[in-house]
Nucleic acid binder design. Structure first.
Lengths: 239, 239
DNA sequence: TCCCCCGTGTGATTGCCGTCACTACGGGGG
DNA sequence: CCCCCGTAGTGACGGCAATCACACGGGGGA
């Protein structure tokens, strides 16, 4: 199917073939049909701002494909990446439900397909489809869960190397691919962005990664990172 | 009504006179009746452990009266207080819904009344009462919202004084009482606990509070703290 | 009554990491 | 082809806060 951004697009949720794999979308046919009726499918290039922290909630975005970063910023311009959202996640749900301003900003970091649902439509949908409400509760639980992990990492780490180690271990669990040379991670983030994920500076990330390489904990080849010694990373976390 | 711990107890949700003020409990009579049918009311002294981080979820606790602290700990014993839960909050909902281990520990810091609902009962309740599901989604949204604030505070603050200022401002908004001497806060936490709330050490909290007093930003009289100059606090967070 | 323990206050020291400054490298566009 | 800009790497320096150590005071229990 030819489409912009080389993206496979599915305009019709009912016919979506990956629906069953998605936490939120895996619902009964009539709940999905009702969703189809109120959603607006959109294609977004890399770098699209879906919503900005502090804005009044317009509605939710369901991430069908691609990825988005959720960020929060201080007044001086320092930015913290709270989470990298994966397909199947619902963005902006909590703000939309509460009617409070978005607590984070969302920006695509890949060409992405998103389904937008207006706030009033979404609320009506939740009211009329208990199943969707249940799935939303699950989605929110997941969000809370991952926020809690972030809090642990930010608040309990003594040193920055501990935070970085935590992040790498997270990546191993999430998208790690075992090879003979260790666990292979595709690093699509710059040092700057990694720094923003763990609340430190670009220079420190560079230094720590060099340090890890020196200690043979990791190895970097192009945009691939090999975690050679996961145990050593784990050791850094629980010293 | 005589009762242990000098606590007003309401064994019957349907007759609860504060129900309307509670985000979660403010439901239709039949939803409340159904809740009544599955809940177990319990009275807990100060210091009761409701559940511990990492445990398999047994169910949810609805905080009727009293307060509880939600904490997470590192392996070395360092503790971070994630949130002080107030009456009306549901504790352990996300873990219960997802079937994943509790992500935090919960401990009462006052004599408290809690209604416990077993996991299977709670899930069945959500399935059969859309209204309760909606309220749970709202509750989870609130939780996520406050977790997000915590992340901001931990991740974006440059200095510890900034975090402390953020915390005090939070308290002003939450339970502040305006007087001629400034905003009066009842501080029921020790310096140690304040330190655990902002991820620092007891000594640093003592030093910073002294510093704030010297600068006439706050004044401490017994267990009361007067915020004399809120603007100066706000200045500290956005330098 | 006395003692002990918990919470608070404070000094000295150390080390991590944020900041600034500069170099190097590589790819895309004029 | 060269320039330019975004990314990465590294050194010097300084400041903030963690750590250790100790003193003080008040309240509750033996």
């Amino acid at each position: 199917m030819p489409s912009p951004y080389n993206l496979e697009v599915e305009y019709n949720c009912s016919e979506c073939h990956v629906r069953a794999d998605r936490l939120f979308c895996n619902m009964s046919p009539d709940a999905v049909a009702a969703l189809d009726a109120v959603k607006f499918t959109g294609l977004y290039p890399k770098g699209s701002l879906l919503f900005v922290e502090g804005e009044e909630p317009r509605g939710v975005f369901i991430l069908c494909s691609g990825r988005a970063k959720l960020t929060t910023s201080s007044t001086e311009g320092k930015t913290l990446i709270v989470k990298i959202a994966e397909p199947g996640e619902v963005l902006g749900a909590s703000a939309t439900i509460l009617g409070k301003p978005y607590e984070v900003s969302a920006e695509t970091i890949e060409p992405s397909q998103l389904n937008f649902v207006k706030r009033e439509d979404f609320l009506k949908y939740l009211n009329t489809h208990p199943e969707a409400c249940l799935h939303t509760a699950r989605q929110l639980s997941e969000k809370y869960h991952s926020a809690q992990r972030e809090i642990r990492s930010l608040g309990l780490s003594q040193t920055t190397s501990e935070k970085l180690a935590r992040l790498l271990l997270d990546w191993c669990d999430r998208g790690g691919e075992s090879t003979t040379k260790g666990i292979r991670l595709k690093v699509l983030l710059t040092h700057e962005e990694i720094a923003q994920m763990i609340g430190t500076t670009r220079e420190t990330v560079t230094r720590l990664l060099s340090d890890f390489r020196r200690k043979k904990i990791i190895d970097v080849k192009g945009s691939s990172m090999f975690v050679i010694s996961k145990p050593q990373l784990e050791h850094l976390v629980s010293v």
